[in-house]
């Protein structure tokens, strides 16, 4: 069995080919120029993930919304629920870039962190 993919890790966008025999669970990946491409292809075929970025309401005078991100690519099936949760929040400043807003989303070990500082 053979699948064609385009890696989304970086702007090069490697054209990947993933192959596996019918009696095996292991995909072998070719066409990647770095190890992240291989991991991307395996995840994409078994448990696709994306980095989630959004904004949250806050009480800053300067910034009506603060940008946030998932610390790692999150399994796609959790994304919609996470976004709804973020849109319902209002955070209190000050916050620091990298500070954790939501820890361990759905027990994945992945956090939601702030993408910038906001002091006032």
């Amino acid at each position: 069995m053979e699948k064609k993919l385009i890696c989304i890790n970086c702007p090069i966008g490697c054209h990947l080919t993933a192959e596996r025999s019918n009696d095996s669970d292991a995909w072998s990946v070719t066409g990647n120029r770095c190890p992240r491409g291989e991991l991307y292809a395996r995840n994409e075929l078994t448990d696709p993930r994306r980095v989630v970025t959004a904004t949250v309401r806050c009480n800053s005078e300067l910034m009506p919304r603060l940008p946030v991100r998932s610390s790692e690519p999150l399994p796609k099936r959790y994304i919609d629920a996470l976004l709804n949760r973020l849109y319902d929040m209002e955070v209190k400043i000050p916050v620091k870039r990298g500070e954790v807003l939501i820890a361990n989303v759905e027990n994945t070990g992945i956090d939601v962190i702030f993408s910038c500082d906001c002091g006032k």
Partner: peptide, 10 residues
């Protein structure tokens, strides 16, 4: 390192 725009700006 992979960053968002605000992180890159900082």
């Amino acid at each position: 390192e992979e960053l968002t725009g605000p992180e890159y700006a900082d």
